[in-house]
Simulated scan of single mutants.
Amino acid sequence: MIRFLATRLVLLLVGLLIASALIFFTLRVLPGDVAQVIAGTQSTPEQVAAIREQLGLDVPLPVQYLDWVGGILRGDLGSSLITRTPVAEELAEKAAVTVPLALLSLVIALLIAVPFGVLAALRRNTASGTAFAVTAQALAAVPVVWAGMMLVIVFAVWLGWLPPQGFPRSGWDDPAAAIRSLILPALTIGVVEGAVLLRFVRSATLEAIGQDYVRTAAATGLTRRRALITHGLPNVALSVVSVLALQVAGLLVGAVIVEQLFTLPGVGRMLVSDVGNRDLEKVQGAVFLFTAIVLVIGALVDVLARVLDPRQRETT
């Protein structure tokens, strides 16, 4: 197990290093110049060059990359090229919206996927089981933007239960208002991601039902449902845990879109704005943070799967 943990840690660090290089140098290929944005359209080439020198943009790219990576190792993501405020400070402020949105979306997705996925497998030859499977297939194909618009029309326009857009200016000082403003965005992401995950849960449950140990448990007097819950669901949990890393990536991508749709002041909305302003320090900081979260969660999922599955531990 120790060898596995050491190997997984090395792979994680290598992945983060490769990701940082791809993010940094790919962003430099994009057209535009932040120095020109800051100087304005009426600026002279000399003024633009002075701003580039002031911001350190005249330094060779490999040197800029090494400086950025060195800052990350010290916990410093740099400063915004436009506002000159620390990137980590702005990300922390925006994450106060994005992180609760992602967590609430994940909870909704699991509440949809796990019970209904198991139920769809148990009733696979019935009308209700088929309805669950077909509905999940349809919802998984629904674009996030369209799903959000439909939810706004139903719950905000027709019923008037929830606010259609925005986030309270007081932020989390008013928890009730903040949570109400996140419900529709979280439902938008959670319903679509939950439908995707439901199909994996159903497939894993069907596979577990067909295993010998479940049939043996049923032969000893347990009902099929009790045998599945007692002996099959731990193996279903392994499959669900393995898919969660991919789901987190989907949640983060969905958050970027949903924050634009619902005008939430989160990391995703900030990222889209900074791409337009060519504020590369903030963009690369936000993208690297998203990438690091996905890679770290993927590593934790691998470790958790190894802990839950004795067969994997026996191979080390």
Results as ranks from 00 to 15, higher is better:
110 L>A: 12
63 V>N: 07
205 T>D: 02
294 V>K: 00
216 T>S: 12
141 A>K: 01
72 I>F: 08
37 V>L: 09
29 V>A: 14
276 G>M: 03
50 A>G: 08
45 P>V: 04
155 F>M: 10
213 Y>P: 09
311 R>I: 03
99 V>H: 06
242 S>D: 12
9 L>Y: 09
230 T>E: 12
40 G>L: 07
155 F>C: 00
49 A>G: 08
65 Y>W: 01
254 G>F: 07
276 G>H: 03
156 A>K: 09
40 G>V: 01
243 V>R: 10
73 L>M: 11
56 G>K: 12
261 L>G: 05
113 A>V: 01
312 Q>R: 15
131 A>V: 15
29 V>C: 07
282 K>N: 11
258 V>G: 03
71 G>S: 04
283 V>N: 07
86 P>V: 00
75 G>F: 06
234 P>Y: 04
41 T>V: 12
163 P>E: 06
199 R>P: 02
73 L>E: 00
226 R>G: 05
215 R>Y: 07
141 A>I: 02
157 V>M: 12
241 V>C: 02
151 L>N: 02
16 L>D: 01
189 I>F: 03
129 G>S: 01
252 L>G: 02
134 V>K: 00
147 A>L: 15
223 T>A: 07
231 H>Y: 14
146 W>C: 07
81 L>A: 10
86 P>Q: 02
227 A>S: 15
146 W>H: 02
22 L>F: 14
167 F>S: 04
119 L>N: 05
19 A>E: 00
188 T>E: 12
137 Q>C: 01
105 S>F: 04
287 V>I: 15
28 R>D: 14
285 G>Y: 02
227 A>H: 06
250 G>Y: 09
182 L>E: 11
75 G>I: 08
279 D>C: 04
239 S>R: 12
185 P>C: 05
258 V>F: 08
121 A>W: 03
109 A>Y: 01
133 A>S: 14
213 Y>Q: 05
35 A>H: 00
75 G>R: 08
185 P>N: 04
194 G>D: 05
161 W>S: 08
167 F>G: 05
301 V>G: 06
135 T>Y: 03
288 F>P: 01
58 D>R: 02
81 L>G: 10
178 A>N: 10
237 A>C: 13
35 A>T: 07
172 W>S: 06
313 R>D: 14
1 M>L: 15
33 D>G: 02
146 W>M: 10
281 E>W: 08
